[in-house]
Structures are given as structure tokens and as C-alpha cells.
Design a protein around this nucleic acid. Structure first.
Lengths: 149, 149
DNA sequence: CAATTTTGTATCTTCAATTGATACATGATT
DNA sequence: AATCATGTATCAATTGAAGATACAAAATTG
């Protein structure tokens, strides 16, 4: 599988959205994400459903933040994306009569669970606000790719 | 991508190898792994190079353990496999001028690094011996799939 | 109301990495 | 010499994300 970059992608976009006053179109945000508008909308759908952003149609439409970045954690966004699979490794089968396989699977699952718990705990402690560039001015465009043409 | 099951697979095989006296062929072990001999050999190559198992050709050939399970940890095996990618998530780009993206990537990388460190630490603390079925008798065949036909 | 803008979504194709499958040369044993 | 088993090359299949295109629906503008 390809590396899943959705989380990295939407975080980038959300931070930029914070720095703009008016709604920004999928077309422009997709460029800042390095992809196309349809992929962008598909990826952002979960965040809209979860109430972190809103989108409007027609003239003057586009995407805007609903809640302040200080109230959103990385865990919130990861959850809004549907908690994509974290690990690339897994077990072949899971319901087997083989005692050896059961022990192996249990050890792997336990380790993965502990590692994932730490992961999510850390995510829950990081607000999007803390990822803004040091000394960033609200509504200043930082990334050239989201600036108007 | 498919879930990477190589670690789970080889652990299963190693534990069974411990319970058999003579070398076991790729053909039989592949069946116990639920795959074919070529896949099995490809997967086990790293363990042979790392010196945990040996393989012999011709009549009476096959695979056997070189070191006792008490001296092998999950981390050893994971390393012998070439430390396959642990996480399914990643970042789209990595060298960018965008300050926002740099901060996002740094936060994700840091979290992944901590989570992976815990993962490897746990792996280093689990010996293959500890995964043997409770009360298992050395060289007793436990899994029907590796028993002679 | 008609034209334009923009989203929402369905439907492909592409891509990357593991996994599966076949073939065959090489080496060991009988 | 025949047989057995590994070592490895090569190609197809699989899976889920990502890329691309198309178009209906909704909102704004003139």
C-alpha cells in the first residue's frame, strides 16, 4: 500500500485555513496539498462531518474553520479521519487452534496496543495551535502555495 | 498495501522448529505458514543470514534452529527481517519551505519515534521461549500443520 | 431566470509493497 | 546418475491509498 498521508495533509490545510479570513476553495487548498480538488474533498469530508470545518457552495464558497485551533488536538483530527490503520504489520490469521500461533499473535497484539496507546496519548496532548509557526500572525499567509495567484 | 505478516509468520515457524528434532523442509513449513515454499524461503533468508537458523540441501535437508529460543528476542527477529516499516501513515513531502508543514511533520515524526521506541523496547524484552505454549514439551509437535502427513 | 461558481460524489485508473506462483539452476545425498 | 531440497529470478495477484475525470446539485450573481 502507499503510505497514508491523509493526516499530514489535512493538518497542513487546517493550519493554513486559520490564517485566512474568508473561505478558501477546494481548488486552491488542493494545490497547497499537492493534489486535486476531488481528492481534497474526499479527504476533508470526515472533518466536516465532525464539525471542525464547514464548506459552502457557489460564489464565495469554500472551506473555513469552525473551531479555534486551540480546541483541536491531533487526536481529534485522526479520529475525524476515521482512525486510519496505524501499523503496517499484522497477523496472517487470527482464529486458529494452534497454541503457538495464538501466543505469537497475543504478544504482537499486546505490543501494538501499548505502542498505539502511547501514540494516541501523545496525539491527544498536541493542539493544532501549538503547531503554528513561532510568532505567526493570525491570518497572515505563510505558505506560498495557498497565497492567491 | 497489504498488511505485512512476515514477522508473525516467521515467529510461528521458529517456535515450531524448536519442537522438532530433525531439519524440516520448506515445503512442510510453508504449509504451516499457509503459503508456498518460495515465499517461505524468501522470507526466511534474513534469519539465515543473521545466524538464527540454518538450511541444508538435498536428502535430509531443510531448516533447523541454530540458537536456543531463550537467546532470541522478537526484536532480533524483526531486525533480521530488515526492520520492515512499522507505520502505515506517513508524510507527503519532507523538505519544504513551508513553516506550517515543517511543524506538522516534526510533530508527527516525534510521535512516531516515541511510539516506535516503545515498540522496539517491548520487542527486545520478549524472548521466543516465552511464547512457547504453557507446559510445552521440547520437540513435541503442537501444530497439526507441521506434523508429518 | 439564466449563467457561473463551487461543492459532493461516483467511477474509474494508477501506484507501491507484500504476497502468490512458476521455473530452473545449484548443491547434497543415496 | 537419480533424486531431493534449497536459492533465486521473474512475473502476476492483491490491497488500500492516491490521482483523475465527470457531472449533478446547490448557492450566488447579474
Amino acid at each position: 500500500m502507499n503510505r497514508d498521508t491523509r493526516l499530514s495533509d489535512v493538518l497542513h490545510v487546517l493550519l493554513h485555513l486559520n490564517q485566512v479570513d474568508e473561505p478558501v476553495t477546494s481548488d486552491r487548498l488542493a494545490k497547497s496539498m499537492g493534489t486535486n480538488p476531488a481528492v481534497f474533498r474526499r479527504t476533508m469530508a470526515g472533518l466536516r462531518n465532525a464539525g471542525y470545518v464547514q464548506s459552502g457552495r457557489g460564489h464565495g464558497g469554500g472551506w473555513s474553520l469552525v473551531r479555534p485551533l486551540s480546541e483541536i488536538t491531533l487526536l481529534d483530527i485522526y479520529t475525524a479521519l476515521g482512525q486510519p490503520a496505524l501499523f503496517a504489520i499484522g497477523m496472517r490469521s487470527n482464529n486458529t487452534d494452534c497454541l503457538v500461533e495464538r501466543n505469537v499473535n497475543a504478544a504482537l497484539k499486546d505490543t501494538m496496543a501499548q505502542s498505539e496507546a502511547l501514540f494516541l496519548e501523545r496525539f491527544g496532548a498536541i493542539t493544532l495551535e501549538s503547531l503554528l509557526p513561532a510568532g505567526s500572525v493570525p491570518r497572515a499567509v505563510v505558505c506560498p502555495k495557498v497565497a492567491p495567484d
